[in-house]
Design a protein around this nucleic acid. Structure first.
Lengths: 220, 220
DNA sequence: ACCTGAACACCGTTCAAGT
DNA sequence: ACCTGAACACCGTTCAAGT
């Protein structure tokens, strides 16, 4: 809105900022794969020499940390007034949704420790909700670490391409025993994720003060 | 034992093999960190030019696949006659034990898809045991994927350095609510892993045909 | 304050060549 | 069959220099 400042005649290029760099990095990774993210190529994509990036980012590791933070900001801020099961499912599903929205980037940064204020809010919300449901602080933390580990692990394996090899011909006994499980093993990630999440919810429900949950409604 | 064959006077170096290469790679990674694993340095460590490795390994990706396989071979072969809870705990604990025994290597290959015969046996054992406990094939597969995702995710986060940032000063409300959870959040990975595993076991028990498990014995 | 050029010490991989 | 030398097309990062 303000009138153009001095000396911006030839180039309309906005000056670089950390946000610009991170956003371009995210775009590049998703379009051309995890291996494409190099300082040199990222600079080129921004119309700048690679070395200019070091003014906005300490080094490549810091770039990846920034990428992780950009992604985790998309975690849904759940409301506190819904039943705890919803919170539990939303937490895990939110992590997986982020991963599937930016699979290449998640492969790059999905297991980085997030020492950031951004992540503390959804975690605190989850913990408090579990506490209100009757869990001890220790049990709530266990549930949180279970959910986070499971969701990140599941999504990373899914992105990397989960497979269970068809048992080779030299283990005929195994192949036989494995046959009844084959359909479920290849039933798809969405279904597998929901079914695993059901087990977690049932496990947590065990430590809840309210009456035992009705079972059998959800077909897994 | 056999008499030395022709022309091995000067050098006692054993000829390279895939196994030699992989073992040296594993040793090198654990001693000098994940970033130290380069074809050139690995060759040097074996007293050979980097290019010689390509005779025993297709490329670096194949090297990493081989590393993953070497590690997964250490998964315990559980007996089938113990209660299903033991099998469930042993499966997850075995994965984490491997990860903690070779943390640097696990960071490198911990989420690779294992399209190998090696991994099919412990998985089949787990699935069959769960089936005997009364789980449907779908439920057994869900439990397996939950356990594998959780254990790998937990171990990777643990190795990368799990932390939850102390909430910054500009979120005083959050810090207050989070205070009761602080001890549990920093109680250590062993305890957190066991407590999370307890939740999973309880969740699976829900789908078991036998009488409901006695609860409260295990202090988490 | 922000960006560049040139340089340093590396990478994975190919390919023709040696034995 | 197994290993090498030289080369190609890259990396991340430093540093002095430009504006």
């Amino acid at each position: 809105m303000s009138a153009g400042s001095a000396a911006d005649d030839t180039t309309a290029r906005a000056s670089l900022s950390r946000a610009t760099v991170l956003n371009q990095a995210l775009r590049m990774v998703e379009q051309e794969g995890p291996a494409s993210l190099t300082m040199r190529r990222l600079g080129a994509a921004l119309g700048v020499e690679a070395m200019s990036l070091y003014y906005h980012v300490h080094n490549k590791d810091d770039l990846l940390d920034g990428l992780a933070e950009v992604m985790v900001k998309r975690l849904p801020h759940a409301a506190l007034d819904r039943p705890w099961e919803d919170g539990v499912r939303a937490f895990a599903t939110g992590i997986r949704r982020i991963a599937l929205r930016h699979p290449a980037a998640f492969q790059l940064v999905g297991m980085r420790p997030l020492d950031t204020d951004t992540v503390v809010r959804p975690v605190a919300t989850l913990l408090i909700r579990l506490q209100h449901a009757g869990l001890s602080p220790q049990a709530a933390v266990a549930a949180y670490r279970l959910l986070a580990s499971f969701a990140r692990g599941f999504a990373l394996a899914e992105i990397a391409g989960f497979t269970l090899a068809a048992p080779a011909a030299d283990h005929p006994g195994v192949a036989e025993h494995l046959a009844p499980f084959a359909p479920a093993l290849y039933a798809g990630h969405d279904r597998a994720f929901r079914a695993a999440l059901d087990i977690i919810v049932d496990g947590i429900a065990t430590q809840t003060t309210s009456a035992p949950r009705a079972r059998g409604g959800r077909r897994s």
